[in-house]
Amino acid sequence: MKAVAAYKYYDAETVEEACAVLNQYAGKAKVLAGGTDLVDWMKRRFMPTPEVLVNIKKIPGLSGITEEGGALKIGATTTLTDIVENSTIQSKYKSLADAAAKGPPPPIRNMGTVAGNLCQYVRCWYYRWPDWYCYRKGGPICFAPGGRNVPHAIMEQKVCNAVVPSDLAVPLAAMNATLTVQGTGGTREVAVKDLYVVLGTVLKPDEIITSVTVPEAPTKQAFLKSRVRAGVDFALVSAAAATTSKGTTVALGGVAPIMVAGTPDAINAAIDKATPLSENRYKVSVAKAMVRRVTA
């Protein structure tokens, strides 16, 4: 194994316990669920190694898919394979199953969790390379606008041009899903489309996602993803649409550092106002075509 600085390990048995440890090592502890992104992130050593890893996989009741009263509830440590193979999700929430199936290859799906997929670190090559001290690492500038920026953002660029890498966030945002987030201060609800903010998520250091709730099964839904190598790659652009009793919502992935979700007209207007960087003008037309195809 690549040399990783020493860290300690904590097996949490309840959510409260996990939050207490995260609170005690404020900001220096990380939650370990699937580990497919976190272990990679630590081995590449472009960020300081956390002091403590809190394993939440052994907390009982944190994984599982239940459907009650028309709402779908997915536990935080449910693996992506469980989502792909679940018959309820296959029949009623097809776009979610599609997004999980079009995500990583099966061995990674066997480990990766839903909450981990939502909270994974961005795939920007400047962020992921130790030599580039970029804004997201605490440095002075973002290197993407003046460098190679094929997979970077075309809209909503504030200070960082890395895009949201999560595949599941796109259909979940289109289906108006909410996250139940628990911390030492109590429990709160966060909408998936509000989860991402500039340079990270709205989660505080002592908070963990306990479940994802989809309020209503959509009557019509679709998910599309474009990528370089089918089977393994992250999305260049992905789009999901879901029609519920409240109307149609379209969500775009791979175009912005935050979630872009709204009515089809609003999304089309946002794409028209996009500000692509030097090498990713192609994303504008891909995104437009995808919105047209998922809403068709």
Partner: peptide, 9 residues
């Protein structure tokens, strides 16, 4: 289940 063992602690 098949998993990449370099990613499992």
């Amino acid at each position: 289940r098949a998993v990449p063992s370099c990613m499992v602690l």
